[in-house]
Design a protein around this nucleic acid. Structure first.
Lengths: 66, 66
DNA sequence: TCTAAATGTAAAGTTTATTTTACATTTGAT
DNA sequence: ATCAAATGTAAAATAAACTTTACATTTAGA
């Protein structure tokens, strides 16, 4: 799975710390997500979707193997 | 978070076992998801979305506390 | 009613998400 | 060039996802 978090965050002028606080996770979690270190939960995806006002599918995309 | 998996599954005439196989998890995982025993990963949400041809937001919804 | 399929549930185990702390590197502004 | 903010990263700890096995209950059809 890939994601556009970095772009959306830039769009909204938010730091990783800002975003972390906004959705209630640690800054390291945001960093790891952006670097595709792990797959976040659906609750996080929905919270990001709500915050950025974009469908989950626009923020996260399945890849070939998935 | 809540979800409509049971309804979508009925729409598609699939058993929990069918759905489990279709998206590559155990039947117990599907059962637990439907009964809100845990929050699935975003990869699973996207796979369910793809299978049922419905946006993630239509399958999963944040609740008051989230 | 009998039976099989489907669903519910539970415990133990494995893997992965997420946190905390801590530090190193990069970037941007002065 | 310097300083602070932002980002990258890492290790250890905890929480939660997910699996496997196994069995009990419900449901629908013959």
């Amino acid at each position: 799975m890939t994601n556009n978090l970095k772009v959306e965050r830039a769009r909204h002028n938010m730091t990783q710390a800002d975003l972390a606080e906004a959705i209630g996770v640690s800054r390291q979690s945001i960093n790891a997500m952006e670097k595709n270190k792990y797959v976040p939960s659906t609750v996080l995806a929905l919270k990001l979707s709500r915050l950025f006002k974009k469908p989950v599918e626009e923020l996260f995309q399945l890849e070939a193997g998935d």
